[in-house]
């Protein structure tokens, strides 16, 4: 659906050249809610702005729906842009126009007849739950309401892709959640592919199915949200995961483990959905000659599904331990060995 191929982007300023993107390869599949996370200055906005050519790539290709937008003539490009909606951190609504006119504007631009516009705008306002605000001006709305209007406007031309540039960063946590749920509904109900960028891992956790982590103009890690949350590889991804999932082993527990065993074997087991860890542990204990003790256990949520995080200390015969490990993996859990020296 959206494909970045070897994309670089440099900005020429008076003093220097800024390499904002240094070679991006990324594929967003149809139906994805793809999240890009990174600290400020990582190049996220530049990346998302390439998709609708608010910025042109310096080298490489951005292919949207099988087409390289840079090769299109202006008229074709304008037509293509109508298939890509975008919402912004600061909403970018027209203060001089009513809510109705704001939502209508993409349709007015493409010369849609008035009666059709009216019906479509009313339908959109209904969808975002703001039918009663039709005649209000943006200034009279709260941040969350403004973003809903932004969303309604972005959907006016029936796009197949929705780009979200820090769409919830100006909102409080409750409003953020409501807006994210609305995005999810859009994704499911209209099968619209969503590419969103954020600096908040909680946003990724709440609605994305895939994630890419950006740093210094590069994608340093990507995968399914479950994979990355369960087993982040890079330091930066670990830091981001840590902001929402607390899976550190308490210091006091660590000390006890170190006292009883100089080379403890510690596993971190992740599971998702309603599979519980309890039968797993008791099964292992029964089937194999190993002792298990739980060092830390907690359940958080990824895309509203329970996401379990279990850290256990394993002792016993090494062959038995190996068998137990294979069993856990075969059952579909993600297991990682934890190296205490790195914690």
């Amino acid at each position: 659906m959206i494909e970045f191929q070897q994309v670089t982007k440099s900005f020429q300023t008076k003093k220097q050249t800024v390499d904002a993107l240094k070679g991006i390869d990324l594929t967003v599949e149809k139906g994805d809610i793809f999240g890009v996370v990174g600290y400020s200055g990582a190049g996220k906005s530049t990346l998302i702005r390439l998709v609708n050519l608010l910025e042109r790539p310096t080298t490489g290709q951005v292919i949207v729906d099988g087409q390289s937008l840079t090769e299109l003539k202006p008229k074709q490009l304008r037509a293509e842009k109508k298939k890509i909606g975008m919402i912004f951190q600061h909403f970018n609504l027209l203060n001089s126009k009513t809510v109705f006119d704001n939502v209508a504007i993409p349709l007015v631009l493409s010369g849609t007849p008035k009666t059709i516009i009216k019906a479509r705008v009313e339908e959109l306002l209904e969808f975002v739950g703001l039918s009663d605000k039709e005649k209000n001006y943006p200034e009279q709305l709260s941040g969350g309401q403004k973003q809903r209007i932004g969303i309604a406007r972005a959907l006016a031309t029936n796009p197949s892709i929705l780009l979200c540039d820090e769409a919830t960063s100006a909102l409080d946590p409750q409003t953020t959640s409501a807006v994210l749920q609305l995005l999810k509904k859009i994704n499911q109900q209209y099968n619209i592919t969503i590419l969103l960028i954020t600096h908040e891992m909680s946003v990724i956790r709440e609605i994305c199915n895939k994630v890419a982590v950006m740093e210094g103009g590069l994608v340093v890690e990507q995968g399914s949200v479950f994979e990355v949350f369960a087993a982040p590889k890079t330091e930066i991804a670990k830091n981001f995961v840590r902001t929402v999932i607390h899976d550190e082993i308490p210091q006091s527990v660590l000390k006890n483990v170190a006292i009883s065993n100089t080379h403890p074997i510690i596993w971190k087991i992740n599971f998702v959905g309603n599979t519980s860890s309890q039968p797993l542990l008791s099964t292992i204990a029964k089937k194999y000659d190993v002792h298990l003790s739980v060092l830390s256990a907690n359940i958080s949520e990824i895309q509203e599904k329970p996401f379990g995080n279990l850290i256990i200390d394993v002792t016993g015969d090494s062959l038995e331990i190996q068998k137990a490990l294979t069993y856990i993996k075969d059952e579909g859990f993600i297991v990682q060995e934890v190296d205490l020296n790195n914690e």
């Binding site: 608010l54 970018n92 027209l94 993409p106 631009l109 493409s110």
Partner: peptide
């Protein structure tokens, strides 16, 4: 006029005259 408004217009595929008369001047 906020640059974000122009950006929104561009993302909608507005032509230059449309950006001037429907976004810049009203705002």
């Amino acid at each position: 006029v906020d640059k974000g408004i122009i950006e929104a217009a561009q993302s909608m595929g507005a032509t230059v005259p449309q950006i001037i008369f429907k976004f810049l001047i009203p705002e």
